[in-house]
Amino acid sequence: MRAITISCFGEVDVLETADLPVPEPGPGQVSIDVSHAAVGLADVLMRRGEFGGTPPIVPGLEVAGTVREVGAGVHHLRVGQPVVTLSRPTAGGYAEVSVADAAITIPLDSVDPRLDAAEAVALVPNTTTALLSLELVGNVGPGSQVLIHGAAGALSGITAQVARRLGATQVLGTVRSARRAAEAERYGYDLVVSSNGFRSALSDAGIDSVDIVVDPVGGRLRAESLEVLAPLGRLLAVGNASGEDDVRVGANELWLANRAVLGFNVGGLLMQDPTAAEAAARRAIEWVAAGTVNMPHTTLPLAQAAEAHRLLESGDCEGRIVLTVPN
C-alpha cells in the first residue's frame, strides 16, 4: 500500500511517499480502507520528533473510510461499513490502509447516514474531545462562563460550539491577531480579544472572572489564566501549542484561592479505556450531521501531505485540513 512516512525528524520535506505492507488487524481491531485522514498539530509535533519514536513513522491520528477486515472478537462492525476513528496515539492514518481499535472506530451509517467521510474526520474527533473535556472534566453546564484560548483553532472553535450546546451562557475567546479574530467570529463567541493583555480587555468589557478556562496554548497564557478564575473556577489544560515551558502551580495556591487545574488528554484516556468515548462520539456525529457544530475544512490529496503541514504551521488555512486517499 501507499503511505506517507516521516523518514527522519525535521521539516516538511521529511514526509515521503513509501510502499509498505498492508497492516492486518489483531484481536479487537479493524483495518480500514482509508478515504480521508485528518491533519493536526500532533502530526506536526510527531514529524519534529517531539513525541519520540524511531522513523520511519506513518503519521495521522484520525481517519475515515470503510471497514476492510475485522479482527477476532469484533462483532459490532462489518466489512464495508463506513466509519470514523477517534484519536489514536498509534497513528498510521496517512496511508491507504490503517488499523484501529474497534472500540474507537465509530460506524457512521448506524448513527446518521447523512454525514460524509470528509466532514466526519474533520469534525467528529474534535467534537468528541470537546464533549469529554467540557462535560466530564470541566463540568460545563447551564450558566457557565467559559474562556477559550486560541479561539480560532480547530479544537477551540469546536469547543466554543460544544460549550454553548451544553448550556454555557457566555463563551469568550482569545486570539493572537486581528485576522484570527475574524475567523473566530463564525464559532459563536460572545467576545474575542487579543491574547496580549486579555485580562485588561475582559475587564474593560465588564468581565472580571470566568468559571472555566480552556487552554490548548500553555506558557504565559496559562499562568495568567489563573488570575481570571472565579472561586471554584477550573483551568482545563488541553495542550501546549505555544511550546513554552511548563507552568508550575502550587497546591497551596490552588487551595487558598478555591481554584483547580485539570488536564485532559483524549489519546491517553482512550489508551487506558478505549470505550470511554463511545457515547460522546455518537452524540458528536448527531450534532455534526445536524449542523449544530460546524467548521470549514480544506482537502488536499495524500501526496500533498507536506503542503498540508506547511499550511497548518503557517496558519494560512482556516479550520481543519483533510487528506484524501485514493483507493
Score class of each variant (00 low, 15 high):
residue 2 R to I: 01
residue 4 I to N: 07
residue 5 T to W: 06
residue 11 E to V: 00
residue 16 E to W: 02
residue 25 P to T: 08
residue 25 P to I: 07
residue 29 Q to M: 08
residue 35 S to T: 12
residue 40 G to C: 01
residue 41 L to Y: 15
residue 43 D to P: 00
residue 43 D to F: 04
residue 47 R to W: 04
residue 51 F to A: 01
residue 54 T to S: 15
residue 54 T to R: 14
residue 60 G to L: 05
residue 62 E to S: 11
residue 66 T to P: 08
residue 72 A to K: 14
residue 76 H to R: 15
residue 77 L to K: 04
residue 79 V to C: 09
residue 86 L to P: 14
residue 88 R to V: 00
residue 90 T to A: 15
residue 91 A to W: 10
residue 96 E to H: 15
residue 99 V to A: 05
residue 104 I to W: 00
residue 106 I to R: 11
residue 106 I to C: 08
residue 109 D to N: 13
residue 110 S to R: 13
residue 113 P to A: 13
residue 114 R to Q: 12
residue 115 L to Y: 06
residue 119 E to D: 07
residue 122 A to D: 07
residue 123 L to E: 02
residue 126 N to I: 02
residue 127 T to C: 13
residue 128 T to F: 02
residue 129 T to I: 04
residue 130 A to T: 12
residue 134 L to V: 08
residue 139 N to R: 11
residue 139 N to P: 00
residue 141 G to N: 08
residue 142 P to G: 12
residue 142 P to Y: 07
residue 143 G to R: 02
residue 146 V to P: 06
residue 146 V to Y: 04
residue 162 V to F: 00
residue 171 V to M: 07
residue 171 V to S: 01
residue 173 G to I: 00
residue 175 V to Q: 03
residue 176 R to S: 13
residue 176 R to V: 02
residue 188 G to Q: 04
residue 197 G to P: 03
residue 212 I to Y: 03
residue 219 G to L: 13
residue 222 R to Y: 03
residue 223 A to T: 10
residue 229 L to S: 01
residue 233 G to K: 05
residue 236 L to H: 03
residue 237 A to D: 11
residue 239 G to T: 10
residue 239 G to A: 05
residue 249 V to Y: 07
residue 251 A to G: 15
residue 259 R to N: 10
residue 260 A to Q: 09
residue 261 V to H: 06
residue 271 M to Q: 15
residue 272 Q to W: 06
residue 274 P to W: 06
residue 276 A to M: 02
residue 277 A to T: 07
residue 279 A to H: 12
residue 281 A to D: 01
residue 283 R to E: 11
residue 284 A to C: 09
residue 287 W to G: 02
residue 293 V to G: 06
residue 297 H to W: 15
residue 307 E to I: 05
residue 311 L to C: 04
residue 314 S to K: 14
residue 322 V to M: 14
residue 323 L to E: 03
residue 325 V to P: 13
